[in-house]
Simulated assay, not measured.
Amino acid sequence: MSLSAEGRHSNSNNVDTLGEHSNHLNSLYPADFRIRGLALKELPHYIFFFTCHTFINKQTERALEESLKLVLVLRDLGDDVNMVGVLVICERGAERFVLEEIRDMGSFNGTGFREVLIGEVEDLEDFLTTLENKPYIHVSRVIPYEESFHFKPETLVEILKEKMKKYADRIGAGETFCIRMERRGLKGKLSSKEVEREIGGHLWNLLKDEGKKPKVDLEKPDKTVVIQTLGNLCLLGLVNTEFKQKHYLVRFK
Score class of each variant (00 low, 15 high):
154 E>T: 02
50 F>P: 04
199 I>W: 00
61 E>T: 13
3 L>C: 06
15 V>K: 01
94 A>D: 00
176 T>G: 09
74 L>R: 02
245 Q>L: 13
59 Q>Y: 00
1 M>L: 03
44 P>V: 08
68 L>I: 12
140 S>E: 10
173 A>S: 06
232 N>K: 14
137 I>F: 05
52 C>R: 01
154 E>Y: 02
190 L>N: 00
171 I>R: 03
125 E>W: 10
83 M>A: 13
239 V>S: 15
159 I>V: 06
224 T>V: 14
52 C>H: 12
251 R>T: 15
22 S>F: 02
106 G>T: 11
2 S>K: 09
125 E>D: 13
81 V>H: 04
2 S>R: 11
156 L>S: 05
9 H>L: 11
51 T>Q: 03
152 K>S: 10
218 L>V: 05
103 R>D: 07
134 K>M: 13
24 H>R: 02
168 A>I: 05
85 G>L: 04
244 K>M: 15
130 T>C: 10
237 G>C: 13
128 L>C: 13
41 K>N: 02
225 V>K: 14
151 F>G: 00
121 V>L: 14
207 L>P: 00
60 T>G: 01
106 G>V: 12
4 S>F: 11
117 L>V: 06
112 G>L: 00
14 N>P: 00
249 L>T: 11
31 A>F: 04
194 E>D: 11
28 L>S: 01
148 S>W: 03
101 E>T: 08
118 I>Q: 06
71 V>T: 02
219 E>M: 13
165 K>Q: 11
167 Y>C: 02
207 L>H: 11
185 G>Q: 05
44 P>I: 10
217 D>P: 14
123 D>R: 07
108 F>H: 03
112 G>V: 04
165 K>M: 05
167 Y>S: 06
157 V>F: 01
53 H>M: 06
177 F>E: 02
102 I>D: 14
100 E>Q: 12
230 L>F: 05
109 N>I: 02
93 G>N: 04
219 E>R: 13
95 E>F: 00
136 Y>R: 08
111 T>I: 08
244 K>A: 15
225 V>S: 05
57 N>S: 14
86 V>T: 13
187 K>A: 11
79 D>T: 04
194 E>K: 11
85 G>I: 01
37 G>N: 12
138 H>E: 04
243 F>H: 12
185 G>S: 02
91 E>Y: 07
148 S>D: 01
222 D>P: 08
237 G>H: 09
